[in-house]
Every structure is written in structure tokens, then in C-alpha cells.
């Protein structure tokens, strides 16, 4: 993997303010993504976590503050150059009609190619490796539209992998997947993180899976970060209540030992004594 330099790249935001149509969603937030680690962003609906990810990936221009990639203001770096270092998998991406898996994954090579199509042996190697890593090589000739939700999500991740970036940002990559496929996708990301040293940032809905898989957890509410750090340090009943407005009990995950949040509810609490 010659294009990789192990976790050399840094991504930080300073006083970042992000808005849609003048409606501010992220209010003056500062964060530094830990290089070479798995970072998971959690928070209630509409807390601005996806917006933050889009801002970090240069998909949304800030209305205030800056995002810096390797210490340079990301808005001043040409898109192509950013795309060789930082990959983003948007939430529920769309594929054009009739495209095959191999073709879709091949599109991930765009930032590494010149103005006119020049397909090199290195492109081939990257696509093959991405298909192998995501266990989709058998699907290569199939149209994307015919795949199941889980297969399709793995194919999209394969496209992001074919891009061979040192930083990979994913917006809810497990949406619409059953629990087995969710675990499969997250395991795949850990593989990538361990074998290639890729820095990974994931917006994730499932709090307990985030606690299990994150090296670094970021908890957001109302466009601000309420707490961040290792899940074992961050996740307390108090933090969960402040972030989600929900009382809970926290027990160790019997398999990973990471914190597991058990929500309190109004009904079916017979063992709560």
C-alpha cells in the first residue's frame, strides 16, 4: 500500500460554525481528530453530528471558524488534493442506473487519475484490494441495484477504500442494516484501522456499538461537543442524561468490557429495584 503513510495526516476544527440556509446547526465547535484511531460521533437526532462530518470533509463550507487538514485551511486546498488524503462516505449515497459493482468501486480512483481516463495497474490493484477487503469480489460483475442492503453498503465502503485515503469519514454506514451486518461493517473498519493505520471517523446511531468500537468517543448535543475521550472515561449516567435527556444504567459489555448503556423506561422495569 504505497499510497499510505501511516496516520501522518491531521484533521482539526477551530471555532467551527456550520449552517444550512443561514440556520446555524454547529455553533463554534473545536475538535482534533486523533490520528490513527477510530473516532465515533454520537448524539441525539438533529444534534449536528452529520453536519459536523460534512464540514470536516469539506462538503459544507463553514460560516465561521476553520477546518484544517495537515495545518492548512481545507477550503483553500484543491478538491482533488483533499480527496487523495481524505475520503468520505455520505449517508445513503445513490448510484446511477445500471452500474456494476466493479465500475462503482473503480470511481473511487478518480482523485488519483489525470484529466483524461488513464487506468493503471495501480488502479486495478486498489480496486481488487478494496473488493477483497469488503468481501464483494464475487459481486464484481453484478449491477449495484440488484444487491441487498448489506451488500450495497459494503460495495460503497469498497469504493471509499479504493480511494486509498489516510483519513476515512463515514456518515451512518450501518443505517438500514440488520444487527449482524452492522457488526460486520464495523469489524471491517477496525480491520482497516489496524492493518493500514487509517484514521477513521464514524457518525453512528447505535450508542453501544459506538462504545465497543471507538477508541475515541465524541458526544454531541445542540451543535456542541458535551464530552469526548475514551468510552470508558466518557460514558457515565450523567453524560448520557445530558446528551440524550434519558436516565440509564451503565454496565460493562459482557464481551468487550466497554460501557454498555441500558436505558430506563416507564414500563417493564420489574428488575430495577
Amino acid at each position: 500500500m504505497t499510497e499510505h503513510t501511516l496516520a501522518e495526516h491531521t484533521l482539526t476544527a477551530t471555532d467551527l460554525r456550520l449552517a444550512y440556509d443561514r440556520r446555524e446547526v454547529v455553533h463554534g465547535l473545536s475538535v482534533a481528530v486523533p490520528p490513527g484511531k477510530m473516532t465515533m460521533i454520537v448524539g441525539p437526532n438533529a444534534c449536528g453530528k452529520s453536519t459536523l462530518l460534512r464540514g470536516l470533509a469539506r462538503l459544507l463550507a463553514p460560516v465561521g471558524g476553520t477546518v484544517e487538514l495537515d495545518g492548512r485551511d481545507i477550503s483553500t486546498i484543491p478538491g482533488r488534493e483533499v480527496a487523495t488524503v481524505l475520503g468520505i462516505l455520505p449517508q445513503s449515497p445513490a448510484a446511477p442506473e445500471g452500474i456494476t459493482v466493479a465500475d462503482l468501486v473503480g470511481r473511487g480512483r478518480y482523485p488519483h487519475q489525470g484529466w483524461f481516463r488513464r487506468w493503471t495497474a495501480q488502479d486495478d490493484a486498489a480496486v481488487n484490494e478494496a473488493l477483497t477487503a469488503t468481501d464483494t469480489i464475487e459481486l464484481a460483475a453484478r449491477p449495484v441495484a440488484e444487491l441487498s442492503g448489506g451488500q450495497r453498503q459494503r460495495v460503497w465502503i469498497a469504493m471509499a477504500l479504493a480511494q486509498r485515503t489516510d483519513l476515512l469519514l463515514l456518515d451512518e454506514p450501518t443505517t438500514y442494516l440488520d444487527v449482524a451486518h452492522q457488526v460486520e461493517v464495523l469489524d471491517l473498519l477496525v480491520d482497516l484501522n489496524v492493518t493500514s493505520g487509517t484514521t477513521i471517523v464514524v457518525v453512528l446511531h447505535d450508542l453501544n456499538l459506538a462504545c465497543r468500537y471507538a477508541d475515541h468517543l465524541i458526544a454531541m448535543r445542540d451543535g456542541a461537543i458535551l464530552a469526548e475521550g475514551a468510552p470508558a472515561d466518557v460514558v457515565t449516567t450523567d453524560v448520557i442524561e445530558r446528551v440524550f435527556g434519558m436516565r440509564s444504567r451503565i454496565i460493562p459489555d459482557p464481551l468487550s468490557g466497554t460501557p454498555m448503556v441500558v436505558p430506563e423506561s416507564r414500563h417493564r422495569m420489574e428488575n430495577s429495584a
Binding site: 478538491g79 482533488r80 487523495t84 468520505i88 449515497p93 445513490a94 478518480y110 482523485p111 480511494q163
Partner: peptide
């Protein structure tokens, strides 16, 4: 080639540079 990528949506195209 950029036109080809725009068919994948603005976010994906932008993410690819």
C-alpha cells in the same frame, strides 16, 4: 469524468474531489 461522478450525487462527487 467529473460529469460522470456528478451522477453519484453532490456529496459523493465532492468527496472524490
Amino acid at each position: 469524468r467529473a460529469l460522470d461522478l456528478l451522477a453519484f450525487g453532490d456529496d459523493t462527487a465532492s468527496g472524490l474531489g
